[in-house]
């Protein structure tokens, strides 16, 4: 498998990657090249959502994305979420609602909701937000606290 360099901006910082095999997944580049392990590896088949990141603002499953596909893009991971005013509100809402237990799905939910709220703001109906987030799995909370955090995060938007 051939390899070549990829230019990415990750959480606002230029992050050039050298000799990236063409079949390398964005998930692995983030975790093992850049040490950004907040992006979680769950199923690697696109079913659990734990690896969700934003690529140019859009919610993306990093396990099903080749690093080369996102050449030149701006990637936001959970480590960068708090720097975003919307992300900071989402994070506070999750903490206040107790919307986490083991925490393994949490980065995926934070990133996905931040992406949705940045795009749609308060205009997004709660039901639509929940529908969008239904592709992120959580085994601990039973989702009730997460749903409360989603409503609360939306309310907190300016």
């Amino acid at each position: 498998m051939s390899a070549s360099s990829v230019r990415l901006t990750v959480n606002g910082a230029p992050s050039p990657l050298a000799e990236v095999p063409h079949d390398e997944r964005l998930l692995d580049s983030l975790r093992w090249r850049l040490g950004l392990k907040g992006t979680k590896e769950g199923c690697r088949t696109g079913n659990c959502g734990a690896c969700t990141v934003l690529v140019d603002g859009a919610s993306t499953l990093s396990c099903l994305t080749l690093t080369h596909e996102v050449e030149g893009a701006a990637v936001t991971t959970v480590e960068g979420v708090a720097d975003d005013p919307v992300g900071a509100r989402v994070r506070a809402a999750f903490a206040d609602a107790g919307a986490l237990q083991c925490g393994y799905c949490t980065p995926g939910f934070l990133v996905a909701l931040t992406g949705l709220l940045r795009e749609e703001g308060r205009a997004a109906p709660v039901e639509e937000l929940l529908e969008e987030l239904a592709s992120n799995l959580c085994r601990c909370t039973g989702y009730s606290a997460i749903a409360r955090a989603v409503k609360d995060a939306r309310e907190r938007l300016p």
């Binding site: 950004l36 992006t39 959970v78 480590e79 994070r91 999750f94 903490a95 206040d96 609602a97 107790g98």
Partner: peptide, 17 residues
């Protein structure tokens, strides 16, 4: 709901656990 924030919440929410 939670009166006291979980002590592990900030670490997990920052992706640092």
């Amino acid at each position: 709901m939670s009166a006291v924030r979980r002590p592990d919440a900030d670490l997990k929410l920052a992706g640092q656990a």
